[in-house]
C-alpha cells in the first residue's frame, strides 16, 4: 500500500516517512504541493497525507486536483490550526481525515490504520480487489483486511508490516526462515538490512501476539538462522 506524504518541514516529513515505512507502507515523500501533485500522477498512491501550508501549491489545492481526477485514494490533512480543520471539514474537499499538529506516533498510526481499514472496506464493497484472506497461526486468527488479529474475543492491533511477517511465517509453516528472507519478503529487496530492525520488530510483535513473549509459541527463534512458525 502506497502513501504519498506532502510536508514542507523536512524533519516532520522524515519522521512520518520512517513511521509509515516501519508500519509497512511504501512511502513517497514530497516537500511541496507541486511535487505532491506530480508524484500523485506518477505513483497513484492509496493514501495521501497533505500538509496544508506548503510552498507553490497548498494542500487544499492538491486535494481538489486529486478529487477532480479520482475518488480512489484516501486523503489525510496534516494541520496546525484548528481553523484549518474547519476548512477541511467545511470545504467538502473530499478529505477522509485529518491529523492535528502536534501529533504523536500513536495518533498517526491510529489515523492511518483507520484509513487503511476504510480502504479495504471500500474495496470489498466495490469488489474491485480481492481482499487478503484471513489465516490462523496457532490460536491467533489474523484478519488482514481489519489490520487485526483475534484471540478469542481479544482484538490485537496489527500493522501492515506485522501482517506481512505473519503471512510469511504462515506460508512457510515448520520451516526455519533466515533473517535475509524476512527482509526480502517483508521489507523489499531495496531495504538495507539491519538485523536489529528485524529482531526489534519481532520482539514487539511477540509482545502483541504471544501469550507469553518470553517463551513464544507462534514466532520461535532458530538460533543462528532466524525464525520459525510451527
Amino acid at each position: 500500500m502506497k502513501v504519498l506524504v506532502a510536508e514542507d518541514d523536512p524533519h516532520t516529513r522524515a519522521g512520518l516517512e520512517e513511521i509509515l515505512i516501519e508500519e509497512g507502507y511504501q512511502v513517497i515523500a514530497t516537500a511541496d504541493g507541486r511535487q505532491a501533485w506530480q508524484a500523485f500522477q506518477d505513483h497513484s498512491p492509496d493514501v495521501v497525507c497533505l500538509d496544508i501550508m506548503m510552498p507553490h501549491m497548498d494542500g487544499y489545492e492538491v486535494c481538489r486536483k486529486i478529487r477532480r481526477q479520482t475518488d480512489e485514494p484516501a486523503v489525510l490533512f496534516i494541520t496546525a490550526k484548528s481553523e484549518e480543520i474547519d476548512a477541511v471539514l467545511g470545504l467538502e474537499l473530499g478529505a477522509d481525515d485529518f491529523i492535528q499538529k502536534p501529533f504523536g506516533v500513536k495518533e498517526v498510526l491510529a489515523r492511518i490504520r483507520a484509513v487503511t481499514r476504510r480502504i479495504y472496506k471500500k474495496q470489498s464493497a466495490a469488489n474491485t480487489k480481492a481482499l487478503p484472506d484471513s489465516f490462523t497461526l496457532a490460536d491467533l486468527k489474523v484478519v488482514p483486511s481489519e489490520l487485526r488479529g483475534f484471540r478469542g474475543d481479544q482484538a490485537i492491533e496489527l500493522s501492515l508490516r506485522d501482517l506481512q511477517i505473519l503471512k510469511f511465517l504462515h506460508r512457510n509453516e515448520g520451516r526455519a526462515l533466515s533473517r535475509d528472507s524476512f527482509f526480502d519478503e517483508c521489507w523489499g529487496f531495496d531495504y538495507l538490512p539491519n538485523s536489529r530492525t528485524l529482531d526489534q520488530h519481532i520482539s514487539q510483535l511477540r509482545k502483541k501476539i504471544e501469550l507469553d513473549p518470553k517463551s513464544p509459541e507462534i514466532i520461535k527463534t532458530v538460533h543462528g538462522v532466524g525464525y520459525r512458525y510451527g
Binding site: T12, P102, F103
Partner: peptide, 8 residues
Amino acid sequence: TPLTNIRM
C-alpha cells in the same frame, strides 16, 4: 511544527 518533531 518543532513541537511535533520533538514529540514524534
